[in-house]
């Protein structure tokens, strides 16, 4: 059976103006225990690639430029 792409709204939001991933920073990607963040090849900024979040917040707490915000996933809000 073919695979569809179902849309999902993701809880982790990155402020691209503050994110310095394009300067080589990978802190949020490194510290996520679920490994769901990536650096976009298009923008050079961090983003949430997989909607598999424990909303535990190391990505936000450890970000050196306060670029990351963790929201509560919509399903349990």
């Amino acid at each position: 059976m073919p695979i569809a792409n179902s849309p999902t709204t993701v809880p982790v939001v990155v402020d691209e103006k503050k994110c310095i991933a394009d300067k080589g920073c990978t802190v949020c990607v490194d510290v996520c225990p679920l490994d769901v963040l990536r650096i976009s090849e298009m923008t050079g900024k961090a983003y949430m690639k997989y909607d598999e979040c424990w909303y535990c917040m190391p990505c936000e707490a450890d970000c050196p430029t306060d670029a990351v915000t963790v929201n509560i996933p919509y399903l349990l809000r």
């Binding site: 679920l34 424990w54 535990c56 996933p73 399903l75 349990l76």
Partner: peptide, 15 residues
Amino acid sequence: LPTSGYMFGTYENPT
């Protein structure tokens, strides 16, 4: 499975 249906919203760290 958490009752919210969000697969990673478990009590334990889902990893």
